[in-house]
Amino acid sequence: MTPQDIADKVQKQFGDAVLEFDAEALDPVIKVNPEAWFDICEFLKTDADLEFDNLVCLSGFDYGAGKELGIIIHLYSFPKRHSIAVKADLPRENPRIRSIESLWRTADWHEREVFDLYGVVFDGHPDLRRILCPDDWEGYPLRKDYEVQEFYHGIRVPYKEDWEEFDTFLKNPRRGHFVFQFERTLPANGNAKPKEKPSP
């Protein structure tokens, strides 16, 4: 089925819950109401014409500081060989959506990852813990307005250049030593690289 057919089918079944369908996008995407998230996913998986048995990817994203969060899944069907993407926007404060872990087991860890990095709470998830960051980490790192915590268990978290050390080193009279030592070990012809040089 073409993405348009799939979207029409979902639209027919759910009506207003389908907010918009972008057929021009590189991956045609159906935008749905988060209230109907689980039902639409269940329909996509179980309907005899759709049979999306493979959840390829589940990712969260952020529209920007102060705006909404989003969640998008890319689905593929092994029997029917067609694909579609479904996405939903969630409020920034207290984002909640129903878990689709019971439909595709692979969503388990993907949802934990989105919870870890964006703070989206998946209702009905059996084991919603942080997965990549430590359990007692503060904040949700991939949000655009995230600010890293200063200390984690007494360890300084943000990386800071130690400019004082740099400057004292610059004033050290022996600093030329390294350059000279290095120069002496250079190959005689010096520049040893191929001629072609595109700009990356």
């Binding site: 190959p187 010096g190 690289k193 040089k197 700009s199 990356p200």
Partner: peptide, 12 residues
Amino acid sequence: TTVCPTDCIYMT
């Protein structure tokens, strides 16, 4: 090294 206009930075 690829962007350097005078090839003055290079890898040894």
